[in-house]
């Protein structure tokens, strides 16, 4: 694993209507690494996910991509054209659009021939129902199929990093395993993966770095098998004890 950060957010602070969401958060995502940011509901994970992907401009702090300051680009179309794809919480697929249209939009702005070439490769990763339902409205897919489609849409951008918020939300354990298998495959191909999860179990099986976030602050960062990580998670989820 290359230790040089691909994405680096520094001193991030953010508020919604005066309510503090993030306070002084620093996070490095190594190129080709698999980082899991874990924390309870309301810890600030989704806000941080959007900031890491450049979809939200923080009120304080800076975002760097491969060493370059890209903070001013954040909050518009994200950093997808620079190779950072975001899969937001709840997938945010275009439910009325077809499977094919959703995937093609993942590579929006690229020449049609290039998009069609990528499409074939992405379909290979998709479950049968998605592969055989290219003209189906995305809203008619099951939760697991929709999550895979959301991953596929992100892959259409041919990203260097995939930021995924709550990938296991509302999915059966077997489907969560399938999603994480695909994320593992991405990491093997050199794509950095950042998952923001409330459910720690699956993320801890696959990530090589765990970051615990609580009340808008990073309370711990360390290796998966680190005892301090387990303790930090216990504190984060259960408070104390």
């Amino acid at each position: 694993m290359n230790s040089a950060p691909l994405i680096s957010v520094k001193g991030i602070g953010h508020r919604y209507d005066g309510v503090l969401a993030l306070d002084g958060v620093d996070l490095d995502i190594p190129a080709g690494g698999f980082v899991a940011v874990l924390g309870p509901n309301g810890a600030g994970k989704s806000t941080l996910a959007q900031i890491v992907a450049g979809a939200l401009r923080p009120l304080k702090g800076r975002i760097e991509l491969a060493g370059a300051d890209v903070t001013s680009r954040a909050g518009r179309q994200g950093l997808v054209d620079a190779g950072v794809a975001l899969i937001p919480e709840g997938r945010r697929l275009f439910g009325q659009l077809t499977v094919d249209e959703n995937l093609m939009l993942g590579a929006y702005g690229k020449p049609r021939a290039e998009r069609e070439a990528r499409l074939a490769g992405v379909y290979e990763l998709m479950p049968e129902a998605v592969r055989n339902g290219k003209d189906r409205a995305a809203a008619t897919l099951s939760g697991g199929e929709q999550q895979m489609l959301a991953v596929g849409r992100a892959l259409m951008a041919k990203p260097r990093a995939v930021v995924i918020d709550e990938p296991s939300l509302g999915l059966a354990p077997i489907l969560i395993d399938r999603v994480y298998e695909v994320l593992d495959g991405l990491r093997r191909d050199g794509v950095a993966v950042v998952v923001f999860e409330q459910l720690a179990t699956h993320a801890m099986k696959h990530a090589d770095q765990i970051v615990v976030i609580d009340h808008g602050r990073i309370s711990h960062r360390g290796a998966v098998d680190d005892e301090a990580t387990v303790e930090a998670l216990r504190m984060g989820y259960l408070g104390h004890g």
Binding site: A55, G78, V80, E101, R153
Partner: peptide, 22 residues
């Protein structure tokens, strides 16, 4: 492509931005 992007943007402005639609 622009027409599909317009339908996507009409459905979900945030998701449209996420995939790079201006």
């Amino acid at each position: 492509t622009v027409g599909v992007a317009m339908r996507a943007s009409a459905e979900d402005h945030f998701a449209a931005r996420v995939v790079g639609i201006n």
